[in-house]
Write a protein that binds this DNA or RNA. Structure first.
Length: 233
DNA sequence: GCGACAG
DNA sequence: ATCTTGTCGC
């Protein structure tokens, strides 16, 4: 038996998970690979059911110019970690990883539904996922975990730096006029300006990125199909 | 000790 | 996240 790499170690207690995050963050690279070209961008998400312990995860890869889906994958995995603020990756990544293994088309960037560096230890699910898959990643959350920001303009594209303990850890971004902003932060192999630019690019019409919207629909469909006795791949 | 707290 | 119906506004 070989010891699992720390980046894919899920059999930990909440206390051990916190220590693991402190070590993993040393491996983070907060800048894009030189000459990064983004042609395909993916969204990852999971769906769970109230009284059950099965999680349905999936990826949807989009052409970054047309935003048309070019590939997708899904997987059902038993949940083994509770939802604990700050430790979301330990609950969701095992499921997302199973779907990643079934994804045949590799995206250039992955957008996660949650925080990147806008996290107590700068190791949100987007950071952990980027490290795990070795892919540039972005965190785009619907609400804040940590940090504060000043007011931002009403227009789509308006931004306001998100600060935590004296550091700029992300950006509040208005992706649509008249709606609450989303919170963007780099995951791995990514920087804040590039993350904000990409999120705006894939969110031309609605508050959330098209990647997230597609992934969310996919995993919910998988969950419902499973409940009806159907078997999907 | 109290309040906050991604999904 | 999930549980749920109608309802207010562009």
């Amino acid at each position: 038996m070989e010891l699992q790499p720390e980046v894919s170690r899920w059999d930990v207690t909440p206390s051990e998970a916190v220590e693991l995050q402190r070590r993993l963050r040393e491996q983070l690279v907060l800048r894009p690979p030189p000459g990064l070209k983004v042609e395909r961008i993916a969204g990852a998400d999971i769906s769970t059911e109230k009284g059950k312990d099965t999680g349905f995860g999936g990826f949807v890869v989009l052409d970054v110019e047309t935003l048309a889906p070019v590939a997708q994958s899904g997987a059902a995995v038993t949940l083994h970690f509770p939802y604990v603020p700050g430790l979301l990756s330990f609950r969701e990544l095992p499921i997302v990883a199973a779907a990643w293994e079934r994804l045949t088309v590799r995206p250039d960037v992955v957008i996660f539904d949650g925080q990147g560096t806008a996290h107590p230890r700068r190791m949100g699910i987007a950071c952990h996922g980027g490290l795990l898959f070795g892919v540039p990643s972005i965190g785009c959350a619907k609400s804040l975990l940590v940090g504060t920001h000043g007011p931002l303009g009403e227009a789509r594209g308006s931004t306001a730096p998100l600060t935590h303990r004296g550091e700029v850890v992300g950006m509040a971004v208005r992706t649509r006029k008249g709606v609450q902003p989303v919170y963007v932060s780099p995951g791995h192999l990514m920087d804040l300006p590039t993350a904000v630019e990409l999120v705006l690019k894939v969110s031309p019409k609605y508050r959330e990125p098209e990647t997230t919207r597609h992934a969310h629909r996919l995993v919910n469909a998988l969950r419902r199909a499973d409940g009806e006795g159907a078997e999907l791949e």
